[in-house]
């Protein structure tokens, strides 16, 4: 048999295909250890890694899509709000101008009534002062007129009685001519002053 150097028995052909006992045992041990390693350590680890990676990629894509959709929705919302805000602002502005105009007219009316009131007050006051002025003037005019008349007329008026009669007559004429609203029934005869 060719090539048998140290073996005690020659290997015949069929033994190639029939496993020897040590062969079986050795193969079993090797396969068991490899199976244990693959099934318990490597494959769970790598499938988990692969799944995680795929999920991350898909999740990343989904997440990006979702964020983009959200951003667009937010943008649309903001635009709508902006439009509404602008409309509101325009409305308010119009209202404000209208109100402003109203306020102005109101103030004008108020001011006018106020002005009228003041004017009336002033008129009344003027009337009152005029009356008092007339009254004081009356007192003064009497003496002034007499003074003047006495100087002019001279001593023809030295007579007191005549004087007082003249004075009263003069004053009545004065009353009648200057008091149209006073409604005093003064003597309406108008006598030209002597002189």
């Amino acid at each position: 048999m060719p090539g048998t150097l140290l073996a005690d028995e020659a290997v015949s052909g069929i033994e190639v295909f029939l496993p020897a006992s040590y062969d079986i045992v050795g193969s079993l041990i090797v396969t068991a250890i490899l199976a244990f390693f693959f099934f318990k350590y490597l494959m769970p680890k790598m499938t988990a890694l692969l799944d995680e990676r795929a999920a991350k990629i898909e999740g990343g894509i989904e997440h990006a899509a979702k964020v983009q959709a959200e951003a667009e929705a937010a943008k649309a919302e903001r635009d709508a709000e902006l439009v509404a805000a602008r409309q509101e602002a325009a409305r308010i502005r119009e209202g404000a101008t209208g109100e402003g105009a109203e306020i102005v007219t109101e103030a004008k009316a108020k001011a006018q009534t106020e002005a009228q009131r003041i004017v009336e007050n002033a008129h009344r006051q003027i009337e009152a002062e005029r009356q008092s002025a007339v009254v004081s003037l009356r007192a003064d005019i009497g003496s002034l007129a007499t003074e003047l008349a006495s100087r002019i007329v001279g001593e023809s008026l030295a007579d007191d009685a005549r004087q007082s009669r003249l004075v009263d007559r003069f004053l009545d004429e004065l009353d009648a001519s200057t008091a149209p609203t006073a409604a005093t029934a003064g003597p309406t005869d108008q006598r030209p002053t002597e002189g």
Partner: peptide, 19 residues
């Protein structure tokens, strides 16, 4: 010495004869 099938049945190193 051409190789033969004996190549695949080398002598045992340890535990000769046992499984």
């Amino acid at each position: 010495h051409a190789p033969s099938i004996q190549e695949f049945f080398p002598p045992a190193i340890w535990f000769d004869g046992t499984p």
